[in-house]
């Protein structure tokens, strides 16, 4: 009998080529940065990098769950903008009110998506597109299209500006905890496994007796909640609710998820690799900044998007090849 009780790292790696590729690339970029730039490993750079990217990490992880079911959530950017305004309005009551308030608002938008997709059977792409427009309009309406300053007297700005135990920014601590919880949900609970099974085959999952509707609704609620948390970090970090922010965030999140190796058709995916994907895309930007700082070559900030697109292209080619390889192997057997 094969001894498969123990976790076999080598097999794991060979089964998840893309996760490996992402982590290796990430490590290589970090190493490159550390060697090339003086302040790259400095406290300031790490803090500001993590602070800013914590928002993208959390919405990417929420998006990852949606994509694993074979769906998509285009509303996350607008929902984050909306909830940043809510958080700003609630900031006088302190973070203990503003955080749950804004997250609940995000879950509210998630609920609209869930009803549209699960009950009304509207394709996720369109359902969340509508929510995207609605949340964007809503954010502008409740804010009067102005940035809404937070209450600097309360503890609200701590979240985005201060560090826990003087080590890590609060934002990344909170996001880190949420990500760990979600990792556990995905890897260790029936709900998480159901999410993956739905993406792998919705009909098969139903016939296996899994609670397909419940899990599908869950991912949209989750994604909304994650966007809500990103909104809180946004308001807290910039000291204001930002109704105009969040444009294109959904696409960055999708890109992170795809770079992390999650199949867009669903059924395969990983929280950790998604985090790595988000960090990787953020790091590209960070390194470009440093490169410009050195003045040797002048990459304009606009290259950022071009390079992100290029990354996505490379990943898609990679995925297409992996899938084609699988097909061929299947034919051969």
């Amino acid at each position: 009998m094969l001894d498969t009780d123990t976790f076999d790292l080598r097999k794991y790696l060979s089964r998840n080529p893309q996760s490996v590729a992402v982590w290796v690339t990430l490590a290589a970029l970090i190493l490159f940065g550390l060697l090339r730039y003086d302040n790259f490993g400095g406290a300031y750079n790490i803090t500001s990098f993590l602070n800013y990217n914590s928002m993208f990490i959390i919405i990417s992880v929420g998006m990852c769950f949606v994509i694993m079911t074979g769906g998509i959530d285009l509303s996350v950017g607008s929902v984050a903008a909306f909830t940043s305004v809510i958080a700003a309005y609630l900031s006088p009551y302190g973070i203990e009110v503003a955080l749950p308030g804004a997250v609940l608002a995000g879950i509210g938008f998630g609920a609209i998506n869930a009803v549209s997709v699960v009950v009304l059977r509207i394709p996720p792409f369109i359902a969340t597109l509508a929510t995207m427009l609605g949340a964007k309009g809503g954010a502008l309406v409740i804010s009067g299209a102005q940035t809404i300053s937070v209450d600097w007297g309360s503890n609200f700005t701590k979240m985005g500006m201060e560090k826990a135990l003087n080590v890590l920014p609060w934002s990344i601590v909170v996001v880190g905890v949420v990500v760990i919880v979600l990792w556990v949900v995905l890897e260790k609970t029936s709900l998480g496994r159901t999410v993956l099974a739905i993406g792998g085959g919705e009909d098969a999952s139903t016939l296996m007796g899994l609670k397909v509707h419940r899990a599908t609704a869950f991912v949209y609620l989750l994604s909304g909640g994650c966007a809500g948390l990103a909104g809180v970090i946004l308001a807290s970090g910039f000291g204001a609710g930002q109704p105009l922010e969040g444009i294109g965030w959904e696409l960055s999140a999708i890109a992170s998820v795809v770079v992390g190796g999650t199949l867009l058709t669903g059924g395969l995916g990983s929280v950790t690799a998604t985090v790595a994907g988000a960090l990787l895309l953020g790091l590209v930007f960070n390194i470009l900044n440093f490169e410009n700082g050195r003045g040797t070559i002048s990459f304009s900030a606009y290259w950022q998007m071009v390079i992100r697109g290029g990354f996505l292209f490379a990943v898609i080619l990679f995925q297409a090849r992996v899938m084609a390889g699988r097909e061929q192997r299947k034919e051969a057997t």
């Binding site: 609970t189 496994r193 159901t194 099974a197 009909d203 999952s205």
Partner: peptide
């Protein structure tokens, strides 16, 4: 075949009836 071929053999056998620790967490071992 109404199985989810992307998922592991264990998941396909156990899906919906996984052994749990503390009533929530799947005991993969």
């Amino acid at each position: 075949l109404n199985l989810v071929s992307l998922r592991s053999v264990t998941e396909n056998v156990m899906m919906g009836y996984e052994p749990k620790r503390f009533g929530v967490l799947i005991n993969w071992k």
